[in-house]
């Protein structure tokens, strides 16, 4: 077998970190992606620990970081209050901490994000035909990265999230009102998580009815699940599951059916721009939390159209 030995040292391309003969601005891409990923990571971690200002009394706005709210203080919570197992030594309770691992895991193990952070953060490789900082390499052939093969399980969770957030997006357009049409605000807790001093048990604790409305925030909250759907339904694992694993689509034993083919074609169509869907959905989910938070804090209005 003709096995090339390490003979590249004499070539002018060089081998150290950043060594390249490329003349274009190859570093712009990785820096941009790294900036975006890191700023999202920092913001989302901070936001997840807040446990406050993730919903807006008088509306059905709920930050996507906090949905589904299993325990919590907003009217969206399945169980009001915080779970009994939450220990005092733990950080202050935040509903996001219970669920955020699933979408985060989906993105962490996503084939596109893997490319993005291997390149821009781990620098392996930082760009094509550019030297790397480390010589040793195991890739996804050994622990820990071999675990990324579980991506499909995060996908199953992500599909559930698409529908949950879709529901949130729809009800964000339904504004709770009292019988006289004024905004319904008689809730037990404030957006801060503290008890509402104005809470009046004698008055109705549920909205009399809901009116349809639209605001900048509600639009972002419906845009978010749409982009998330575009991202989730273009997943490489889904592409495999719905048909890619088949070698044929002629029906019968061993083959996929016409339905498999159509599903595979649809996922393939979304998959072609998986990176764009991934990044757009990332930006918008962050934006949704920012907007809800600012409105809840009273810093901005929700730009209600009607």
């Amino acid at each position: 077998m003709n096995q090339p030995s390490a003979t590249t040292a004499t070539l002018p391309q060089g081998s150290g970190f950043g060594a390249t003969m490329r003349k274009d601005n190859w570093w712009i891409g990785p820096i941009g992606i790294a900036a975006l990923l890191l700023s999202f990571l920092i913001y989302s971690t901070w936001a997840a620990f807040q446990g406050a200002y993730y919903w807006v009394p008088g509306t059905n706005y709920l930050s996507p970081f906090y949905s589904p709210e299993i325990w919590g203080h907003s009217p969206h919570a399945f169980i009001l209050g915080q779970p009994g197992f939450w220990q005092s030594w733990m950080p202050p309770f935040s509903a996001a901490l219970l669920i955020l691992g699933l979408p985060a895991g989906f993105r962490l193990t996503c084939y596109y994000y893997r490319k993005a952070y291997y390149r821009s953060i781990w620098l392996d490789p930082v760009a094509c035909a550019v030297g790397e900082p480390r010589k040793s390499y195991w890739g996804e052939n050994a622990l820990p990265l071999i675990l990324w093969n579980v991506h499909r399980y995060f996908l199953y969770a992500a599909i559930v999230f698409v529908f949950l957030l879709g529901y949130d997006g729809i009800i964000a357009h339904m504004f709770p009102v009292n019988a006289d049409g004024t905004s319904f605000t008689n809730v037990q807790y404030l957006a801060t998580g503290a008890e509402n001093p104005a809470f009046d048990k004698t008055k109705p604790v549920e909205a009399h009815h809901h009116v349809f409305g639209m605001s900048l925030v509600s639009l972002v909250l419906i845009l978010n699940p749409l982009l998330l759907a575009g991202y989730t339904f273009g997943c490489h694992s889904l592409r495999h599951i719905v048909g890619g694993r088949k070698d044929c689509f002629a029906g019968g034993s061993g083959c996929g059916t016409d339905l498999h083919f159509k599903a595979w074609s649809f996922v393939s169509f979304l998959n072609r721009n998986h990176a764009t869907w991934a990044m757009l959905s990332l930006v918008v989910v962050g934006l949704a939390d920012v907007l809800v938070r600012l409105v809840a804090m009273g810093k901005i209005s929700d730009f209600r159209f009607f």
Partner: peptide, 13 residues
Amino acid sequence: GIGFCNITKCCTE
């Protein structure tokens, strides 16, 4: 050794 591939897509580029 397909596990060594970390899908950074330079081949496709």
